[in-house]
Nucleic acid binder design. Structure first.
Lengths: 171, 171
DNA sequence: CATTTTAATCAGGTCCCCCTGACTAAAATT
DNA sequence: AATTTTAGTCAGGGGGACCTGATTAAAATG
């Protein structure tokens, strides 16, 4: 039986981390806001960028299926990304119904940034990094189980997608 | 010089945690979605709820100042919360320009939920919880410094706000 | 008492995520 | 060749976070 106070402490720190990290990169982006604005992450446009980083040249339909989004939502995000010069659209030559989406160089860079090691990890020792990794592995495992319980159908698809996105870090 | 691979591993796990925890509570909310839908967090409506949980009966202006939001944004969020029966508005009797915002019981509950110890922490041992707390303390410290560098003005106000929200966990 | 400051409100806007419905063009099937 | 399926598009909508500008009502102040 783990100590409830310790749980509370950790929970508090997590909340704090949430709040602080959020405002931190909000400020970071507002400062050297050359022209871009919004952070993007694992939703909407960001989701698509990440998916393409791992698997360039997908069609909109494929993107929609993998990210389980409506095709129309996907189209919207893709169009926004096109406007920002992060991806390109081009008709498939083998099947002219399909539109192939590809990252531009800028898009690839942007995606890579999301995947960068955050500066705050550099302040940690090897031991701490190992501990953190071990702990997060447990936590994530727990969360996968929650997801599986809530929606077994979606769960496996989701795990694949995540694994896909994370491949870079583990192979 | 900490091992870069270890940093990458930890970074990957953090990303994973981000993605997984996000979809996890998205699913959680979609399942027993009686009528409510969206998780709210530390922005917009959620921000206000949290502020009130720590300090009930603030005026809109005070809320706006503390959360540094435009008064109009604050009004918008408050109105949305009123519609959801999470807060009430009432004119101050001492200064009839002011509108006092108070949590309803439901609002208090909702705010408490945000502050609940997440289930996934229960799977950790005391040692792991201590480690996690220690590590997050370091990380948060790092982020505070970043914020301070980006905007020294905002920094102190922000730290106060955070401390305010977290008071429950540490006192 | 007249003016200024203060707390709110209304109006309107920007951008984000995401969905359903209706419709077209190009493949696949019958 | 005619029909159906498939990939996209357009139109429109709902909700969210925020903001600026203009205006009103009630205090504070000269």
């Amino acid at each position: 039986m783990p100590n409830l106070d310790k749980q509370k402490n950790a929970a508090g720190k997590l909340i704090e981390f949430d709040m602080v990290s959020h405002t931190a990169d909000e400020l970071a982006h507002r400062n050297h806001a050359d022209k871009d604005e919004h952070p993007l992450r694992f939703q909407g446009q960001g989701k698509i960028l990440l998916a393409l980083a791992q698997n360039n040249g997908l069609s909109q339909k494929e993107l929609a299926t993998r990210l389980n989004l409506a095709v129309q939502s996907t189209a919207e995000f893709v169009n926004k990304l096109v406007k920002k010069d992060l991806v390109t659209k081009e008709k498939s030559s083998t099947d002219r119904r399909k539109t192939i989406i590809r990252l531009t160089d800028l898009g690839r860079e942007t995606a890579a940034e999301t995947a960068k090691v955050p500066a705050y990890l550099e302040g940690l020792s090897d031991t701490e990094l190992d501990q953190l990794t071990a702990i997060l592995t447990k936590i994530n495992q727990h969360l996968y189980e929650d997801i599986d319980q809530a929606s077994p159908t979606y769960s496996s698809k989701f795990q694949e997608t995540v694994a896909d996105h994370l491949r870079d870090w583990f192979m």
